[in-house]
Nucleic acid binder design. Structure first.
Lengths: 229, 229
DNA sequence: CACAAGTATGCTGCATACAGAATTTTGTTT
DNA sequence: AAACAAAATTCTGTATGCAGCATACTTGTG
C-alpha cells in the first residue's frame, strides 16, 4: 500500500528532463517543495515525519533525505531534536533576496544579449506576446506563469549554468510570496511596461539597457510585495 | 565502536556558532565537504556508502542524508541506482561560476560601503595588513587563508544574508580549484595590488570603485586558475 | 486553585535488515 | 584466446526497529 502511493508520487513527477528517469527522491523533493511554495505547508509549520510520510505514501527514510535536501535549498530549517520547520522569511530576508535576484537577472540579461541566438530571442518574443494577450484579458494566473517563463528564459539564454542554478534557489524561496503579492491595476501596468522595454532591449541586444531594466524591475517588485509580508 | 568514532567526529566540528550544539548531520556534511575541497575525494570519485560510513564511524542512514545535502549544494552528483559521485567541473563551469562570483562580490562591495561600520572596516583593514605581512614573507598558505577571510568579511559587511548564502555555495564549489591554482610571482603581485585598491576604496566608501575592483579581481582569478583545470 | 515535579507519550535520530538493481566474476563456447 | 552468458557478489534504495530526548499530561503539594 505504501509502495502504491509512492509509485503514484513518481508518476506525478513532471519528467520532461533529458535522459534520467525520475527517482523517488526527486519526486518527494519536488512534491514537498510545491507544498511549501503553494502555501499548503505554511511558514513556521513543523513537519511531522510520520504523518507527512504516510500522506505521501513513503517511509521515513527517503522522506528525511528529501527534507535534508530542502534544508540545503533554504526552504526548511532544522532545529536539532525537533525536526524540520518551514522557513519563515522576514521582510528583510525578502528584500535582501530581491536585491540579489535583481543583480543576478541584470547579469543574465547582459550575458543573454551576448550569447542568445536570434531564434531564441524570437521564442522569448513569443512568450512575451502571449503574456500581453493575457494582460489584455486581465487573466492573472496565465499572465503570472508566462511572466515567470520569460524571466527563466532570459536566465537560460545567458548560457551560464552556475547563474541559472543560484537564481533558481533564490527564486524558489520567494515564489510563494510573489505569488501572493497581487498588485493593483496601476502597478500591473508598470510591470507590463517594464516587460515591453525588456523585450525591445533584448531584440536590440542592448546589454546595458536590458541589464538595467531587469535590475530595476526587481526593485519595483519589492514595492509590489512588501505589504503582502 | 561506531558511536565512539561518531562522537569524535562531532568533537571535530568547529562550533563557534551561537547557541545550537553541533549535530552529527552537520559534522558529517562539514567533514565530507572538506574531503572534497581538499582533494581527498577527487572529482569523479564514486562515493561508497559502506566504506565511507565505516571510515567516518557512522551508519549509512545519516551519511546518506548528508550526501543528499551536498548534492543540493552542487558538490556531488546523483546517478540513480549508482549513488553519489564527486562532481566534476568543466573549464566552462569554473569560468561561469567566476563570472557570477565576481558579480556577487561586486554587489557585496557596493552594499558594504553603505552598511559597514567604521569599526568593521577597521577589522578588514587589519586582516589586510596581516595578509600583506604574509605576502612580504611569501608565506603562501596563511596568505591564502587571510585572502579568503577578507573576501568573506566584505560579503558579511554587506549585511545581506541571501547574498552571503549564495556566495558561499558557489565559493565552496570552486575552493579546491582556487587552492590548486598557484600563480607565479607577477600575477601574485597583481592580486596584491588589487587588494590594496580594495581596502582603499572600502575606507573611502567608494562603492563604484570597490565594486569594480572586486568584479575585475574575479575576472583575473580566471586567468590565474584556467591552466590548472 | 496555582504551580511544580514526576510520569507518560510521542517524535526524532540512528542503526540495522531486506529487496532489487548493478557489477563483477566465472564458466562455457566458438 | 576471446567473447558471450550466467551466476554470484556487491551496492543502492527503502522499510523497520530501537534508544534517547522533548513535550505534554498528570498528580501531588503549598
Amino acid at each position: 500500500m505504501a509502495s502504491d502511493a509512492a509509485a503514484l508520487l513518481v508518476d506525478d513527477f513532471d519528467s520532461r528532463g533529458p535522459i534520467a528517469r525520475p527517482t523517488l527522491h526527486d519526486a518527494i523533493v519536488a512534491r514537498v517543495r510545491d507544498m511549501i511554495i503553494e502555501g499548503e505547508l505554511a511558514p513556521g509549520t513543523r513537519l511531522h515525519e510520520g504523518n507527512l510520510g504516510k500522506m505521501l505514501g513513503v517511509s521515513r527514510t527517503p522522506l528525511r533525505e528529501a527534507l535534508k535536501f530542502l534544508v540545503s535549498e533554504g526552504l526548511l530549517e532544522l532545529s536539532p531534536g525537533r525536526g524540520a520547520v518551514v522557513r519563515q522569511f522576514s521582510a528583510k530576508d525578502v528584500h535582501d533576496s530581491l536585491i540579489v535576484l535583481g543583480n543576478l537577472e541584470g547579469l543574465a540579461g547582459r550575458l543573454a544579449c551576448e550569447h542568445a541566438t536570434d531564434a531564441e530571442i524570437g521564442e522569448v518574443r513569443q512568450l512575451h506576446d502571449r503574456m500581453m494577450d493575457m494582460y489584455e484579458k486581465r487573466d492573472r494566473l496565465p499572465y503570472f506563469k508566462l511572466n515567470q517563463s520569460i524571466h527563466s528564459a532570459i536566465l537560460r539564454l545567458s548560457k551560464n549554468e552556475a547563474l541559472v542554478s543560484v537564481h533558481n534557489v533564490l527564486q524558489a524561496r520567494l515564489k510563494r510570496i510573489r505569488y501572493i503579492g497581487n498588485e493593483g491595476p496601476e502597478k500591473w501596468a508598470g510591470a507590463v511596461a517594464d516587460h515591453e522595454e525588456m523585450i525591445n532591449a533584448l531584440k536590440a541586444r542592448d546589454a546595458d539597457r536590458l541589464s538595467k531594466v531587469l535590475t530595476d524591475h526587481m526593485a519595483k517588485t519589492w514595492e509590489r510585495v512588501r505589504n503582502a509580508i
